[in-house]
Design a protein around this nucleic acid. Structure first.
Lengths: 110, 110
DNA sequence: TCCATATTTCCAGATTTCCAGAAATGAAGA
DNA sequence: TCTTCATTTCTGGAAATCTGGAAATATGGA
């Protein structure tokens, strides 16, 4: 992942509505959620939500599939992984115990 | 970690200078870097950098230690771990294979 | 084709963030 | 105490972001 994309991803998640959207899609997994339902579940206007979804999509954090007249959104865990890899680059040089907590946090859930 | 702190952390990292600072500190590990050196290494004014460091600190991403007249900054990997845990909450409900890529990305480096 | 539904795009105003200059604070040494 | 170095705080203007109204686009069905 390049720096520009990492920045857009982090800036995208650093906004309340978009953070809520991403977490909603992470919880929804392979099922995904249609744009309109995302908007109504998070009590936002469809046009505002569309702008947020566009930003998340541009940042590689969500993926879409058209389904009839609605558009279904999914969390893109591959994009998220790339972001993490970028953030933790060279974290272990000489002192693996420093980033050990991070590994444990991610692995223990699954 | 509560949502407000997660938001500040993500917003903090979603800015180029601060992202550079965090990655610099992650690479520097237990050695840390003094505030002035951070500023000069990233070609920023000391006062501007101080504002950025304050934001990162408030977000729980960095930690400080006074050392004579300089202040040494360190990446706070515990705070970072908490952020990840918040982002991945309930990610595996029913479909562990979705977040599998994330686990692999984090574990393979150490 | 015409209509209804779902979503997106365009635009403008309100708010927030970013940055640099000036001044203030904290710590060490003469 | 006075000076110097390192860092932080305060402040204002420029730039970017967030939000909602209005209009446009896309899809499916009558």
């Amino acid at each position: 992942m390049d720096k520009t994309l990492a920045l857009s991803a982090l800036a995208a998640l650093g906004q309340e509505t978009r953070l809520d959207v991403f977490r909603l899609l992470v919880r929804s997994g392979a099922e995904g959620v249609a744009a309109g339902e995302i908007a109504s579940r998070l009590a936002a206007l469809p046009n505002t939500m569309s702008a947020h979804l566009k930003i998340l999509s541009h940042a590689g954090l969500v993926r879409t599939e058209r389904e009839g007249r609605s558009v279904r959104y999914f969390a893109d865990m591959t994009g998220f992984r790339d972001l993490l890899a970028y953030l933790m680059e060279d974290c272990c040089n000489g002192a693996p115990e420093l980033c050990q907590p991070v590994i444990q946090a991610v692995t223990c859930n699954c």
